[in-house]
C-alpha cells in the first residue's frame, strides 16, 4: 500500500468519523428539541397535577400576575411548597354539581356513541360496499358537511331542533352528534379495505347481506369502528359549542361547561376538577390507543 493510499484512507476515516460525530450531534440536537417540545406539550398536565395539590394561597401567590394584572410573570413550582389534598376532597365530597355535569357528559357521549354505532356503521358499510345511484354525490356531501364548522350549521340545526321541540333537552345535542359525518367517513375508509374476494366467498357460501355485514364487515372493520367511536368519544366529551347553543337549562350542562361555573379564588379546585375530568378520556385513549393511531393514520393517508 503506497503512502498516498494510506493518506487517502486516513483522510476517509477522518471524514467518516467527522460525519458520525456530526450526525450524532444532529441526532442529539433533534432529541433535545423533541424532548423540549414533549415537555412543553406535557406541561399543562403537569400544571394540572401540581395545581391540584397546591393550596389556594400558594396558587394566588404564583398566579397573581395573571389574575390581578400585576407586573411580572406567573411562576410555578415543580413540587408544591405546601401540598394539600383539600382540593381533591372538595371536588370529591363537596361538589355534587361536578358529578351531575359529569353524568350529563356521559349521557350525551353515550347517546351519541350508541347512535353512531347503530347508524354510522351501517351507513359507512353501505357507502363503502354498495354501488347505487348518487353514491358519489352522497359521499361528497358527507365530505362537505364534515368540512363545515359547527358555527355554520348551528342556526339551521337550532331551527330544526326548535321545530321538533327538542331544544333545551339532551336530545338537542345527541341527535346532531349521532349523525356526525366524520365517523362515517373514517369507517368508510376501513370498510373499503375489506377485500371483495372475501365478500364474494361469503356470498357463494350463501351468506345474506346482513350476515356479511355482521360477520365479515364488522370484524374486519373493527379497528376503524373503534377508532372512529373513540375519536367521537373524545370530541363529545369536550364539546362546548353545542351545549351552549342548544341547552338553556343549567341542569343539562355537561362537564365541559363546568369551569366557567367555578368562581374566582377557586384555582386549585379548578385544577383538580380538570384533572378528574381528564381521566375518562385518558383511560379510553390508553385503552384504544393502538386502534386510534391506525384510525388516525388511515384517515390522514387515505383522505
Amino acid at each position: 500500500m503506497t503512502e498516498k493510499m494510506k493518506r487517502k484512507r486516513t483522510a476517509e476515516r477522518k471524514t467518516a468519523a467527522a460525519g458520525r460525530i456530526c450526525r450524532r450531534a444532529i441526532w442529539i440536537c433533534l432529541k433535545a428539541i423533541q424532548i423540549f417540545f414533549a415537555v412543553f406539550m406535557v406541561s399543562p398536565l403537569f400544571f394540572l397535577v401540581t395545581g391540584s395539590i397546591m393550596g389556594e394561597a400558594e396558587l394566588s401567590e404564583y398566579l397573581s400576575p395573571v389574575f390581578t394584572g400585576q407586573e411580572g410573570y406567573a411562576c410555578w413550582r415543580l413540587i408544591p411548597l405546601y401540598p394539600t389534598l383539600k382540593n381533591v376532597v372538595e371536588v370529591l365530597f363537596d361538589s355534587p354539581e361536578f358529578f351531575h355535569m359529569f353524568w350529563n357528559t356521559m349521557k350525551l357521549t353515550a347517546g351519541i356513541i350508541l347512535g353512531q354505532t347503530f347508524l354510522a356503521v351501517p351507513a359507512a358499510w353501505g357507502l363503502a360496499r354498495y354501488s347505487f345511484f348518487g353514491k358519489k354525490a352522497i359521499y361528497q356531501m358527507y365530505l362537505l358537511l364534515m368540512m363545515m364548522p359547527f358555527q355554520v350549521m348551528m342556526l339551521s340545526e337550532y331551527l330544526v331542533l326548535e321545530g321538533m321541540g327538542l331544544n333545551n333537552t339532551l336530545w338537542a345535542v345527541i341527535l346532531p352528534g349521532v349523525f356526525s359525518t366524520f365517523s362515517v367517513f373514517l369507517m368508510y375508509r376501513f370498510f373499503l379495505e375489506v377485500p371483495e374476494e372475501i365478500l364474494e366467498a361469503a356470498r357463494v357460501d350463501g351468506a345474506g347481506e346482513m350476515r356479511m355485514f355482521l360477520l365479515v364487515g364488522l370484524p374486519l372493520g373493527r379497528t376503524g369502528i373503534v377508532s372512529a367511536l373513540l375519536l367521537q368519544f373524545l370530541e363529545c366529551f369536550s364539546m362546548i359549542e353545542q351545549p351552549i347553543a342548544f341547552l338553556k337549562d343549567k341542569t343539562l350542562y355537561p362537564l365541559s361547561l363546568y369551569l366557567p361555573e367555578i368562581a374566582m379564588g377557586q384555582t386549585g379546585f379548578a385544577f383538580c376538577a380538570s384533572l378528574i375530568a381528564l381521566l375518562p378520556p385518558l383511560f379510553l385513549f390508553l385503552a384504544g390507543s393502538d386502534n386510534l393511531a391506525r384510525g388516525i393514520a388511515a384517515g390522514a393517508v387515505k383522505l
Binding site: 365530597f93 355534587p96 361536578f98 358529578f99 351531575h100 353524568w103 383511560f283 379510553l284 384504544g288
Partner: peptide
C-alpha cells in the same frame, strides 16, 4: 383494545358513581 385501561375506565365510572352519591 387494551383491557387494562378499559377496566380502569369502568372502575373509574364506578368510582364517579360512588362519589356522586357521597357528594
Amino acid at each position: 383494545m387494551n383491557k387494562f385501561w378499559a377496566k380502569a375506565f369502568v372502575i373509574l365510572l364506578a368510582v364517579m358513581l360512588f362519589f356522586t352519591v357521597v357528594s
